[in-house]
Amino acid sequence: MRSLVAAAVGLAAALALVLTLTAIGAPAGETSPEPLLTTVPGPKK
């Protein structure tokens, strides 16, 4: 029974954290215009 209560408290805390972060919103900022390299550049031809 204690484990059930602990799981419920943990779930409630996690849900509260998610809702708080959602209410605050994403931080203001801009994305970089430069594309990100996803592979290692090969030898130049």
Rank of each mutant, 00 (worst) to 15 (best):
V9C: 15
T38H: 07
L21G: 10
A28M: 01
A6R: 15
L36E: 09
L11Y: 07
L19M: 10
L4F: 08
L19G: 08
G10S: 14
G10Y: 03
G29E: 01
E30Y: 02
P33D: 03
P43Q: 05
K44A: 12
A7T: 11
L36R: 10
G29T: 01
A14Q: 06
V18E: 03
G42P: 08
P33F: 00
A6E: 14
T31W: 08
A14P: 01
V9W: 06
E30R: 13
A28D: 10
K45Q: 03
A8Q: 15
V9N: 10
I24F: 11
T20W: 15
E34A: 12
A16R: 13
A6H: 06
A13P: 02
A16M: 14
P41E: 07
L37S: 13
A12N: 04
P41Y: 05
L19E: 06
T38Q: 10
P33C: 00
P43V: 04
V40L: 14
T22A: 15
A7S: 14
A12Y: 03
P41L: 04
K45F: 03
A26D: 09
L21A: 15
P33T: 00
A6F: 06
V5A: 15
V18D: 04
G10K: 09
T22K: 13
V40K: 09
K45W: 00
A13R: 12
T20I: 06
G25V: 04
P41N: 04
T22N: 13
A26W: 07
A26G: 02
P27D: 04
G10D: 12
P35Y: 01
A6V: 04
S3M: 10
L19N: 02
A13C: 13
V40G: 00
L11H: 04
P43R: 08
E30L: 06
L4A: 14
E34V: 12
T22P: 00
P43W: 01
L4D: 11
V9F: 13
G10V: 03
R2P: 07
A23M: 15
I24C: 05
G25L: 05
L15D: 09
G29K: 00
T20V: 14
A6W: 03
L37W: 07
A26T: 06
A16N: 08
E34M: 09
A6M: 10
